[in-house]
Write a protein that binds this DNA or RNA. Sequence first.
DNA 1: ATGAAAGCGCTAACAC
DNA 2: GTGTTAGCGCTTTCAT
Lengths: 351, 351
Amino acid sequence: MMKTKGIKEIAIIAGVSIGTVDRVIHRRGKVSAEAKKRVEAAIKETEYRPNLLARSLVNKTKVKIALIIPDSGSDEYWQQSKAGAEEAKKNWDSFGVQLHTFHFHLNTIKSFETATRKALLLSPSAVIFVPIFFKQGIDFVTECDKQKIPVVIFNTHLPGSNPLSFIGTDSVQSGILAGELMHLITSPTGELLVLHFDEDARNSPHMIEKEKGFREFFKRQQPGQARRITTLTLKNKRYKEQLKSLFKSNNFEGVFISTSKAYEVGEFLRNEKNPNVKIIGFDLISKNIELLQKGIIQFLIHQNPRKQTELSISSLCNYLLFNKPILRSNLFPLDIITRSNLSSFVSDEGK
Amino acid sequence: MMKTKGIKEIAIIAGVSIGTVDRVIHRRGKVSAEAKKRVEAAIKETEYRPNLLARSLVNKTKVKIALIIPDSGSDEYWQQSKAGAEEAKKNWDSFGVQLHTFHFHLNTIKSFETATRKALLLSPSAVIFVPIFFKQGIDFVTECDKQKIPVVIFNTHLPGSNPLSFIGTDSVQSGILAGELMHLITSPTGELLVLHFDEDARNSPHMIEKEKGFREFFKRQQPGQARRITTLTLKNKRYKEQLKSLFKSNNFEGVFISTSKAYEVGEFLRNEKNPNVKIIGFDLISKNIELLQKGIIQFLIHQNPRKQTELSISSLCNYLLFNKPILRSNLFPLDIITRSNLSSFVSDEGK
DNA sequence: ATGAAAGCGCTAACAC
DNA sequence: GTGTTAGCGCTTTCAT
């Protein structure tokens, strides 16, 4: 009884042809209400689940994805992202997925616009991008909407857009986390410093949110008396001099750096033989890692650009190929890294 | 020119039929030396790579995996593992993978033996299991080796075995991590307590390794004078009384709990109005989570049983179906959880 | 020793 | 609207 499997079986049950079954499954072509109902009933009854192998065997290479990310030149963060993209590409090309990557310069709006233009020339099935530039990001999303191309945004939130999916971390929350960690490792009244490195304005939304979260933590913690928390934004490249005068006239117990430049502070303090200042920063880049291992930086918060990129791609592929539901907003775990759990994160190449 | 793809193309080039090509690829049947040579040349020339989708479409449901894990009854840790298994099962059954789960009781060796026996009756393509019981684990691996069934071990290391892959965390390292965290949040000379809950002997290797790591950290930190670190193993269920007398006669600044029972200590200290003792423990189970949120537990180290299980299954499937390389040893990241990054870990259901 | 042919479950083009 | 059919690249009979 009922030996055949899959679409054929449900065609028999519903008393229609497999063509019709295909039509209702994919909502394409015309199907009479009657037939549709019967097919859907049969699908439920048999708990039919499509054979993904057969499907992608037939649909080879129909999925083209354009990935638009910052140039990874000397930027380790984006190098890690790129590595994730390559990993994902390897994983999905057996399913006929074509991943085309377009790079742009972090400081050049034009290069971003060029990248998006080139990406659209592919007429991709979907687009993944990092909206470093607000206005141009919105423009791009609008254009994609017009062309009915699904958009996935990652790493940076783009307020006012409504992408298929957003994947990234919660900057405010990461600031709160940094606040808590700082609280745990400093004395209750120790003075704190929040340091921004503002060579590239592109980071400013992140930076502001992180500081907001950081201060928020202490506000909640001690609603009455606030700790003394100083903020400073280092704008030009002469960090050392600025840091020197800063630490001469203050007695900070801890420094929170809102970008990946924690190592600048770490190196400075190491040279000054000032080992008692606690440092918390972001990102597993090599200079930070070195100072973490030496115990000069206490905590790094890891945003995992590699996995963010990988996941952006694979959740999109799963959605496109296999109809798997995709999360509208996928906030990434905030990994806390110390010298003791570092190794399990950096050797984490094999997924 | 040369439009056909795959096996057919190389058949044409070599001037034989696809049947012959198949024979040389799989070294089955009889092939003349002459034909073999020509086919192999063609394979090299075209850089032929088999289409894995087509292959497993034909060989449907030839992959049967037996998963042998502890009963998840009231144990949240193993419930999470089970959830991971179900997720993975859903993901892979479209590829014709059959995942059969066998449960055993954590305290009953017999039930483990029964489970392994049942598992082998399936004649599975591969086996994944948790070696809670040392001797029986070795026996099982030996038997699988004899039957040429690949074995993946997870969660618990099985010394003396040589599985296809091991997936789990490094217990010693997690102890070191706990040591570092404790060091960061207590004063340099504060007295510390290491607490084992030994209701089930099954945990003892883990417990011992964790304590070893914990002490190791302080040894490295202060080679000269060691901190005062007390160890206690709570054996019967009357935890409160034991804890009461313990804390009456000592002045601990921090407690490290080697199992998931940190909440026992947390609840005790909360009732005693003793809020200044720092607590570090393991596992995101609900009672621990509650106390973490309240600030009574400072850190939980998360071993991510859900992802461990998921990854065990999917890396095995990728190996079996798609010939992807599998890591001999895949040490999981040790996630540090505080109240501030907790949410991104517990809501992490969608991969 | 080798070739031809029938599918695996699904999609898409084409007929009616 | 609906059914039929030719493959996707591979494995596996079954002849020869």
